[in-house]
């Protein structure tokens, strides 16, 4: 298994995930349109938007950190894909997950967020900073139930490495950890709502209040990079929860199906609930999800 083949496979995997992410956002907008009785965008619209943004002729930069922001973000997305086994079992698609376990993935999310935050900060626009402060506060609150759930799983499977967690869930639906450890699953899924950034918790990029928050000053190629890394992140978030709770994916179609369903779980929840203010969303995570997380650990450890 030469390193070049592995690199090529990982690159190919990344392209698949990138396109799948774009397609998924198109489907998401089409479903929301259908909900409103509209035809909605053609399914290839995200690609065109990406092309048009890359095609924009003027590019303006506020400074070094400004154009490093999207690069951090893209590296964060690429890294999320890299350090997580896309497909279980196949040596080709296990990417670089041998380099670190779930702790690395958890903390690598911050890498993208940090870069985005600093880039938006350098932009100098007050709205972007307000958006970032809300995003960080919300992420801190999400981390609580997520960590509780992951520790509960770690106790159950006595391991932190993602491959072993998936391995333990193989063999049919019955021993997916959503069923073997439902309370931890519930805590993680509620945290997933926040991680995905759909309606109840999409305060960070709220269009009307603070015109789309952090990326206010971004345009042309930067916006292209941001959109593509956004698409990849959506897929990889869903993939993370898939690997944790739904037994990972052994083949690409299974990967696509499961990520689709997890992604749209948060979309459908989002379509129903109005947007939370920042203190409501933070406090919400301290109520039920926290209780569930604590219960999960209590159940597992005793």
């Amino acid at each position: 298994m030469s390193i070049y083949l592995k690199l090529g496979a990982t690159l190919l995997g990344f392209l698949i995930v990138l396109n799948w992410g774009m397609l998924m956002s198109a489907i998401f907008r089409k479903i929301v349109a259908r909900l409103a009785g509209r035809h909605g965008i053609p399914f290839y619209q995200p690609w065109i938007d990406l092309l048009k943004n890359i095609g924009i002729r003027t590019t303006l930069t506020h400074g070094v950190m400004f154009y490093l922001g999207p690069i951090f973000r893209f590296t964060g997305a690429l890294g999320m894909f890299l350090f997580m086994p896309a497909l279980f079992g196949s040596d080709l698609w296990a990417n670089f997950s041998f380099q670190g376990d779930i702790v690395l993935i958890l903390y690598f999310q911050l890498f993208g967020m940090l870069g985005m935050a600093l880039g938006a900060g350098e932009g100098g626009h007050p709205h972007s900073t307000i958006g970032i402060t809300r995003g960080l506060a919300q992420h801190a609150a999400i981390e609580l139930p997520l960590t509780l759930g992951i520790i509960a799983l770690a106790i159950q499977y006595q391991t932190l490495s993602l491959n072993e967690i998936i391995a333990a869930q193989q063999g049919g639906m019955a021993n997916w950890s959503i069923f073997t450890n439902p309370v931890a699953g519930a805590a993680i899924l509620l945290a997933a709502l926040g991680a995905m950034g759909h309606s109840p918790f999409n305060l960070v990029k709220a269009p009307n209040e603070i015109p789309i928050g952090p990326p206010t000053e971004y345009h042309s190629t930067y916006l292209g990079v941001l959109m593509s890394s956004g698409a990849v992140l959506h897929v990889m978030e869903a993939a993370l929860f898939m690997n944790l709770l739904f037994g990972g994916a052994t083949s690409w179609p299974e990967f696509i199906l499961k990520t689709f369903l997890i992604y749209f779980y948060s979309v459908f929840v989002g379509a129903v609930f109005p947007r939370f203010r920042i203190e409501q969303s933070v406090v919400w995570f301290f109520k039920i999800p926290l209780a569930l997380g604590i219960l999960a650990i209590l159940l597992i450890s005793f």
Partner: peptide, 14 residues
């Protein structure tokens, strides 16, 4: 107008 790829954007930059 979405069918034609027309979309409202909040900032002149985009």
């Amino acid at each position: 107008a979405y069918r034609f790829g027309v979309q409202m954007r909040a900032t002149p930059r985009q």
